[in-house]
Amino acid sequence: MTDQPYNFAYLDEQTKRMIRRAILKGLAIPGYQVPFASREMPMPYGWGTGGVQVSAAVLTPSDRFKVIDQGADDTTNAVSIRNFFRRTAGIEVTTKTTDATVIQTRHRVPETALHAGQVLVYQVPIPEPLRFLEPRETETRKMHALEDYGLMHVKLYEDISRHGHIATAYAYPVKVEGRYVMDPSPIPKFDNPKVSDCPAIQLFGAGREQRIYALPPYTRVVSLDFEDHPFEASKADHPCGLCGAEDSYLDEVITDDAGGRMFVCSDTDFCETRQAAGHRGKDAA
């Protein structure tokens, strides 16, 4: 049921127009961070204010909306954002990846392949991939303008010289269509290959940092690497304890104080769908 005192999808129309213009420019310049006048939302920064604003600007009354937080539909963040739009936009919500038309995500790409017509909205904490290498916005903006990404390669090289391999495991930098270096948000690098050549539209919203960027469908997204140290999408080397999947990203769950642990799919919908189809892992009850 829609709470009548609110405009459709909470935000006022002028704010939505401003966000919509930023989304269109973002789609026209894949990987470029478009500044936008981020609003205060009824949730703290870091809880997805950017993603929520992008979702509010994108949702229509006929959408089915799904929210995941680290792959899970049932965590506080996911439940509260889903309820927020169920109340303020009166839209249908779902936990099924295949049924959803708009999916807001924090730090995961669903395991189930997305299809054309879907929109994936990422919550982004720090949109600037160069920020921890160069704190000044004036400088990083110049570096993007000049396509000066040597510093990022030095950082990856230093990883190799210190650890023997590229130790960046999440928010792994990518290059979009051979032009802009982009932060894919803190998704595990396991998810990076799914970002490239994806049939769905991918939108990235950073509320505190006031940036929106986007990837149109079928955009070429390459994880940065070296010829002799090629990019590798890594995951815990176990099958899922509940559904037995060997190709999904896993969470490690501590089960007791005696060293007991289990590995389970981080994507709850993927895991539940597999269990419903009869797949069982070694820890399944």
Binding site: F8, R20, I201, P216
Partner: peptide, 19 residues
């Protein structure tokens, strides 16, 4: 109905710009 009609028009614009 500006809110919902603009939302649907924008989705059409966004799909067009993205594809």
């Amino acid at each position: 109905t500006p809110a919902t009609q603009a939302a649907m028009a924008f989705r059409a614009l966004m799909e067009a710009m993205a594809r």
